[in-house]
């Protein structure tokens, strides 16, 4: 199954990263990262905290600047050119650990703001799109409420809908379930699984190994700012090669 999917999608490259390096001051966070993401591919990035996995996906939509190497997203190279960066950001959706909804706007306004002002879509059409995606994440009835009135799981689903309203070609998830209560994790993961089934290109930093097994085409393990191992989920979990990976897996799957 995984083989077949890979063949279907590998004809187009969504993200290509070549020997990319990043420093925070003199601290070398990302070291010689090489990564090709094909269109429709679903990648899970895992690793111990401080390994640079969040920084890696934040570099992909230029929330963090990289200092050397090359990142090409959707055919556009990330440079310091503001126009390019804004274009890439409108093509790449992102969900954050702490949702980062806009608390002063209603759920509907959260979802329509960017389509109206960045995509220049008429308000009515943007609202229809927003309702469509809010239905997709199963909370259309909350459209007129404010983020503060929603539970964590609902807020994260709104955040996903907000990103989808821009019709992104790539979605990045930065530990989307880490700040949630256990019973809310499932509703967010279900939404993400549905998204994956629709063929969205996804890169997801997460510790949900069940999700990785079920959805990912590829699991990437990072440590000390470098990619230590990447493989299909079956191989990765059942037959890890490096010692670091084995240690990490034994720690998170140990109980």
């Amino acid at each position: 199954m995984a083989e077949k999917l890979k063949l279907e999608v590998s004809d187009e490259i969504a993200i290509s990263i070549k020997s990319m390096n990043k420093w925070f001051g003199s601290f070398h966070v990302l070291r010689d990262i090489d990564l090709i993401v094909n269109r429709g591919e679903r990648i899970v990035v895992c690793g111990p905290s401080g390994s640079g996995k969040s920084t890696l996906i934040r570099c992909i939509n230029a929330l963090e600047e990289h200092q050397s190497g090359q990142i090409i997203v959707d055919g556009t190279e990330l440079t310091s050119d503001i126009k390019n960066i804004d274009r890439i950001r409108s093509e790449v959706g992102m969900c954050f650990q702490h949702f980062n909804l806009f608390p002063h706007l209603s759920i509907l306004e959260n979802c329509t703001l960017a389509p109206i002002w960045v995509r220049k879509i008429p308000k009515k059409e943007a609202e229809e799109t927003a309702m469509h995606f809010l239905e997709k994440v199963k909370i259309p009835e909350q459209a007129d409420k404010y983020p503060g009135q929603l539970s964590g799981g609902q807020q994260q689903r709104v955040a996903i809908a907000r990103s989808l309203c821009m019709r992104p070609r790539i979605m990045l998830f930065d530990e989307p379930t880490s700040a949630l209560d256990p019973e809310m994790i499932k509703e967010v993961l279900d939404t993400m699984i549905e998204l994956a089934e629709d063929g969205m290109t996804m890169i997801c930093v997460t510790h949900e190994m069940g999700f990785a097994r079920q959805v990912a085409n590829r699991v990437i393990f990072m440590d000390d700012g470098q990619i230590v191992e990447q493989n299909e989920p079956e191989q990765f979990f059942n037959n890890p090669q490096s010692d670091r990976t084995k240690l990490f897996l034994s720690q998170i799957l140990g109980h």
Binding site: F96, N100, L101, F102, A114, V118
Partner: peptide, 21 residues
């Protein structure tokens, strides 16, 4: 929070728009 700036950036708003809205 820094997250508000990042969220505004990540949905593609430019500087003026993210400040204004």
């Amino acid at each position: 929070s820094k997250g508000q700036y990042e969220a505004a950036d990540s949905i593609g708003l430019d500087y003026t728009q993210s400040m204004r809205f």
